[in-house]
């Protein structure tokens, strides 16, 4: 496999606070970002996600460990070389962070000016970028005249100005409504597919993961607790924190209040079956229930797609003679079906 574009090795970041206490924002993280992929760093707020991306473009220096981007160890670079390295790493932000004193074109031109690109080339590149994000006709507008989605598109154009091979997106869609989120995510997807830019997105939103991520890294308390293919992590999280997070964003199990209502209406035992894209899954489920003489009623759940593969969960009310439901549970597990009883 080719050298990863970003490699964090044993990276920690501690902040000293007044009074001598220290906060560990990032705790011994080792993580690779592969060239050409979209990696989503997910987790609850305060998990250390923002710090992790800021380590990748050296906006933060690690307390220990090394950060290598495109083969360069950022932790060893002097300030001047660091600035040059940052010019090759794009970044977009939750609050867009556009310069209000500059026009749309001026914002996009800024990184080019910093990089010392001559005027004529700069203008051509700005036009090209604005065309790519569909805002060519707003070139002379000021940021406050734009909608949130348009602002983020300007942010993306600005971040891509110097043709960076890597783009960092810090909660880039969290301040946008669902429709605009989809629009910005599909633009990011084009950036990845058409321009071949590697993207690291930080998010706590399932939509963002579902629409663009190839792999996910789950963070909790400053640690990366699980890394893997999006479908694998979401269909079969291996660690408790990942399971917790996946459950909270997928809503795959009935919430406590829903569960209470279900209980009230359905006196039988409630079993939740994980629906993956394994073949014959429905058949095996049916056979297990029928074989044990259990009657079922579908009471909750849903099935949709993740990375073009089936994923979901269905909650059944199971009723039957004494011992029959236990037998069905055993049969389901024997048939390799992931099932859990709601208690």
């Amino acid at each position: 496999m080719a050298e990863p574009i970003v490699r964090l090795t044993g990276v920690s970041k501690r902040y000293e606070r007044k009074g001598g206490t220290a906060v560990t924002a990032v705790d011994d993280v080792s993580l690779d970002v592969h060239e050409g992929e979209v990696l989503a760093v997910i987790g609850y707020s305060g998990a250390g996600k923002s710090t992790v991306v800021r380590l990748m473009n050296a906006l933060e220096a690690p307390t220990s460990g090394t950060v290598t981007v495109a083969g360069q160890d950022l932790t060893r670079l002097p300030e001047k070389d660091l600035r040059r390295a940052r010019q090759k790493i794009g970044m977009i932000f939750q609050q867009f962070n556009l310069f209000r004193s500059r026009t749309v074109a001026g914002n996009v031109a800024y990184p080019l000016k910093v990089a010392g690109v001559p005027r004529a080339q700069r203008d051509a590149r700005v036009a090209e970028l604005l065309d790519f994000v569909g805002l060519l006709e707003r070139a002379h507008a000021h940021p406050e005249q734009l909608s949130g989605g348009q602002k983020q598109r300007v942010g993306i154009a600005r971040a891509l100005a110097t043709n960076p091979p890597l783009l960092l997106a810090d909660e880039a869609t969290s301040a946008l409504d669902p429709e605009t989120t989809t629009e910005v995510l599909s633009l990011l997807r084009r950036v990845n597919r058409e321009l071949g830019v590697t993207i690291v997105v930080i998010t706590h939103e399932m939509d963002a993961v579902r629409q663009i991520a190839d792999r996910v890294a789950v963070m909790e308390n400053g640690r990366v607790v699980e890394v893997g293919d999006v479908y694998d992590v979401f269909s079969a999280p291996r660690t408790a924190p990942a399971r917790r997070f996946v459950r909270s964003v997928l809503h795959d199990r009935p919430e406590p209040d829903v569960l209470e209502r279900l209980r009230h209406r359905h006196p039988g035992r409630l079993l939740t079956v994980l629906i993956t894209d394994e073949p014959d899954l429905q058949k095996r489920v049916d056979e297990a229930f029928v074989g044990a003489g259990v009657r079922t009623e579908l009471v909750h759940g849903g099935v949709s797609e993740l990375r073009e593969r089936r994923l979901g969960s269905l909650t059944y009310e199971a009723t039957g003679p004494r011992g029959a439901v236990d037998a069905a549970l055993a049969a389901l597990r024997a048939a390799g079906v992931a099932v859990e009883e709601e208690v």
Binding site: L59, A85, N97, F99, S101, V114, T162
Partner: peptide, 23 residues
Amino acid sequence: GVVEAARAAGASRLRILFGVVLP
């Protein structure tokens, strides 16, 4: 945030001060 954006673009401190913060 705009200071951070300028830093992320690789601008020097003085450039950020006079080219971003002041305007």
